[in-house]
Nucleic acid binder design. Structure first.
Lengths: 344, 344
DNA sequence: GTGAAAGCGCTAACAA
DNA sequence: TTGTTAGCGCTTTCAC
């Protein structure tokens, strides 16, 4: 008999463990550990033999065993409502940037804009993450109930809620800038509002802020001057603008929930024979790179989305450092900034 | 000595364990486990008491301990070269879709287009993932050396390589469609090529395929008719087109590495006083949604990027099921398809 | 330079 | 219904 059988092949379904490597190399588990992790205290020849054994078995250390032992690995879960929404890549890049700096991992999930899915997705993420970041439409109490003990940082969260971390966007200031631009710089007086879906938390806040500012200028505002976009997309914006234009054919300006809706509005206006911005001024919100590419390019209230992501991770760090910390009265705030382009 | 230490409070920095909960509730760890995991075999009153104890301690089960014990959790790492590249969201959505179906987690990383970072990022991901998916510019041997034993599925990988899983895109067919459209449908005869960065694996393949087809039509092709985009972005496309236009002022068509470069080309052409498509036809590659929004809208060779992502996860599943499986001669292929719009 | 033993936090199997 | 035991795969003592 030969000793060929010492060359145990990796059986499909069962991964080699440190014990397998130790046995094959004829050393203790400890020695294998030293070789794999490149510690000192090991002979060069031994190390080589161990590494060779590991290679031949296709050995990889179990991340669970290592994580359990070392307790130094942090993973944060990022829940998006729709990965393909161009709003998110910059947020994600901010999250990834800070996570990388800290040596943290990031797991992502997509709720596909569905409330039920959202909770499920959060729960799935929570199984793999120490804390969560997300733009959630579920009420705070529901989150607290369904995800007990899980630190959550909410993006774009209206103020006044407790029990979770959050990062705020100053929509009031943003919408004031948008409305002021249309009214003061462009002299528009009949301004419509294209609101987001009723579900979205920040939708109402954006609309209310816009309406308030319109009224402060002595201009009409309210349901008559508002249309809901069914989705926060170009198509949603097209449909919403068509609806609004029917009710208000004399409209000379539109404030939009976000850039995609604004681009849809511009397209629909052109289709209806209106010139932008000669007849109607359009202004978006978010400041997507996309806005520079359409014709005319889109004026928008720019949000530093990468900063939003970075701040969110920092909030997670705060929560993780002291889970018993009280909810902070003033969450970090991102301040929007008007960027004027061709559509107004 | 007192026994006060039995009442271990949740010290910031130390998370409560199942033992802490058991102790506080006055039951065994096993009973706590039953309560937490909603198994039967536990009295209602006991369960309530345990859950209350868990709540008050802010207890969450350790994912490492659970993962170690249950051995049923799969995580795949997705490495992107730049999260903010609009090519990726659809790929990611495909990956997430299949991952969700299988109950797998997805961790993401961003190499920021840097080769050094790429390897580091892959290694970081590998610490948390059972397998990796990525569009990698590192040579295969380097991947195998730096990530021993890690199953990797490469996106957009040229054929003929071994040792990793891969998903292919049929660039030859795609570029043939692009060139044929310009030549046969639009009658263009002086066609430039805007290539991607030299680093990018698929860049050369796309260019070669385009040049080959151009020559098959008896048209000139080669270095004289090619410009490199420094980055796969709109700005990169603008610069590259400017360069190409200087060398070939009589150019009447451009085939581009991707849609962003194509959009940059269109902008630069307009700036140079050329009409698109009257004077010059432009065609992109990838079929980003973005292409519909620019004016004129962009003709492009559409790739089903979500499918690419889905196939990649399926390849991962194959690799994971049998790590010893031989490299498959014919990797799954995504077939590009021409979508004609206004720019040609 | 190397090995033996203990234990990280959890759950399956079995015992009571 | 509840508790005890064992062990998942790894690394950190502490011996040798």
């Amino acid at each position: 008999m030969t000793v060929q059988h010492l060359e145990r092949k990796p059986v499909p379904g069962r991964r080699a463990t440190i014990g397998d490597v130790a046995e094959l190399a004829g050393v203790s588990k400890q020695t294998v550990s030293r070789a794999i992790n490149d510690k000192g205290e090991i002979g060069a020849a031994t190390k080589e033999r161990v590494l060779e054994a590991a290679r031949s078995l296709g050995y990889r250390p179990s991340r669970f065993a290592r994580g359990l032992r070392l307790q130094d690995s942090v993973t944060v879960g990022l829940l998006l409502s729709d990965v393909t929404n161009p709003y998110y890549p910059e947020v994600a890049s901010g999250v990834l940037e800070v996570a990388e700096d800290r040596g943290w991992h990031v797991v992502v999930g997509d709720s596909r804009g569905d409330r039920r899915r959202e909770l499920e997705a959060l729960q799935v993420l929570a199984r793999q993450a120490d804390a969560l970041i997300g733009q959630c439409s579920s009420p705070d109490e529901e989150l607290a109930r369904e995800l007990p003990g899980v630190p959550i940082v909410l993006l774009d969260h209206p103020p006044g809620h407790r029990g979770h971390g959050s990062v705020r966007i100053d929509f009031t200031s943003g919408m004031r800038q948008a409305v002021d631009h249309l009214v003061l710089d462009r002299g528009r007086r009949r301004i419509g509002v294209l609101e987001g879906t009723p579900r979205a938390n920040p939708a109402t806040e954006r609309r209310l802020s816009a309406e308030q500012r319109l009224r402060e200028h002595g201009l009409p505002a309210g349901a008559d001057w508002t249309a809901h976009a069914v989705s926060h997309t170009v198509a949603g914006g097209e449909a919403a603008l068509a609806e609004l234009l029917t009710a208000r054919p004399d409209m000379d300006g539109v404030v939009c929930y976000n850039d995609q809706i604004a681009i849809g509005a511009m397209r629909e206006l052109k289709r209806a024979g209106r010139r932008v911005p000669a007849d109607v001024s359009v202004i978006g919100f978010d400041g997507l790179p996309l806005g520079e590419l359409v014709t005319p390019s889109l004026t928008s209230v720019h949000i530093d989305k990468a900063r939003l992501g970075r701040l969110a991770v920092q909030e997670v760090a705060r929560l993780l450092a002291d889970p018993t910390a009280p909810p902070v009265p003033d969450a970090p705030v991102v301040h929007p900034e008007l960027v004027v382009r061709g559509s107004t």
